[in-house]
Simulated scan of single mutants.
Amino acid sequence: MRPEPERASRHGALADAQGVIFGASMGALGIAFLAHLGLVTGQTAGIALLVSMATGWPFGVVFLALNLPFMWLAWTRMGPGFTIKTLLSVALVSLLTAMQPRLVNFGHVDQVAGAVLAGMISGAGLLALFRHGASLGGIGVLGVWLQDRTGFRAGYTQMVVDAGVFVAALVMLPLRAVLLSLLGAIVLNACIAINHRRDWYVAI
């Protein structure tokens, strides 16, 4: 039985808070997997990882800085509620990734398994954020806006942007690392493309 769109889109403050915390935490964990394995991802997070690798600047600082310009689009196109929750999500990911070495440490992780798990974890986190009227900013804001306005899936928008990110990654990383990063991104985007649908569940 499908939920009624009007009811599915209405979450209370407590439900939204746990959705944002869960989604941002899963996003941060996915990034921690990728960083541990020397892999990247697509979208704004992938750009931030590449910049962090190239400069040594903290990922969280770069990620937050890259996302700030997109907040204008979020505010003007998707409203203050979405923007505030998205900004909180981005800030929480930045904070958690900075704290990650003190909270979570990894031993051996198979690169193939790690890439797939990172994609699944990040996909689950993004779905939670989308369904509670938030995103992790950047291309995610553009993707959700396009899907709600045109029906073009958010996952497909992200795939197009990802292609550019992975071409840039070829300059910095071994081919195997780029291919495994691509595998993780495909898993992530497939999760979103398959599961984030207006006829199943309306996020905003």
Rank of each mutant, 00 (worst) to 15 (best):
residue 89 S to W: 06
residue 4 E to S: 12
residue 203 A to L: 10
residue 57 W to S: 01
residue 194 I to E: 03
residue 172 M to G: 11
residue 70 F to V: 04
residue 4 E to F: 01
residue 184 G to E: 14
residue 60 G to R: 14
residue 97 T to D: 04
residue 143 G to P: 01
residue 177 A to Y: 02
residue 53 M to S: 01
residue 192 I to V: 10
residue 31 I to E: 03
residue 105 N to H: 14
residue 97 T to Q: 12
residue 100 Q to N: 01
residue 50 L to N: 02
residue 124 A to I: 14
residue 59 F to P: 06
residue 147 Q to F: 07
residue 162 D to N: 14
residue 74 A to I: 10
residue 147 Q to D: 07
residue 189 N to H: 08
residue 137 G to M: 08
residue 53 M to A: 10
residue 49 L to Q: 04
residue 166 F to R: 15
residue 103 L to W: 11
residue 91 A to C: 10
residue 73 L to F: 15
residue 182 L to F: 14
residue 194 I to S: 03
residue 199 D to L: 03
residue 124 A to K: 05
residue 36 H to A: 11
residue 89 S to P: 06
residue 11 H to S: 14
residue 96 L to C: 02
residue 28 A to M: 06
residue 78 M to Y: 03
residue 120 M to K: 07
residue 44 T to Q: 09
residue 189 N to F: 00
residue 190 A to W: 09
residue 23 G to I: 10
residue 11 H to L: 15
residue 179 L to H: 13
residue 27 G to Y: 08
residue 11 H to V: 07
residue 50 L to P: 03
residue 10 R to V: 14
residue 127 L to D: 02
residue 81 G to I: 08
residue 191 C to W: 05
residue 119 G to K: 09
residue 21 I to S: 11
residue 31 I to C: 08
residue 40 V to I: 15
residue 23 G to N: 09
residue 139 I to R: 03
residue 36 H to E: 12
residue 131 R to V: 01
residue 21 I to V: 15
residue 173 L to V: 09
residue 89 S to T: 08
residue 127 L to S: 02
residue 78 M to W: 02
residue 82 F to L: 07
residue 43 Q to K: 04
residue 177 A to P: 07
residue 109 V to D: 09
residue 64 L to D: 06
residue 104 V to F: 15
residue 30 G to W: 09
residue 63 F to K: 06
residue 46 G to H: 11
residue 87 L to I: 02
residue 73 L to H: 12
residue 64 L to S: 08
residue 59 F to W: 05
residue 6 E to V: 11
residue 98 A to L: 09
residue 199 D to A: 07
residue 185 A to T: 14
residue 96 L to D: 02
residue 12 G to Y: 13
residue 128 A to Q: 04
residue 73 L to K: 06
residue 152 F to L: 14
residue 48 A to T: 01
residue 100 Q to K: 05
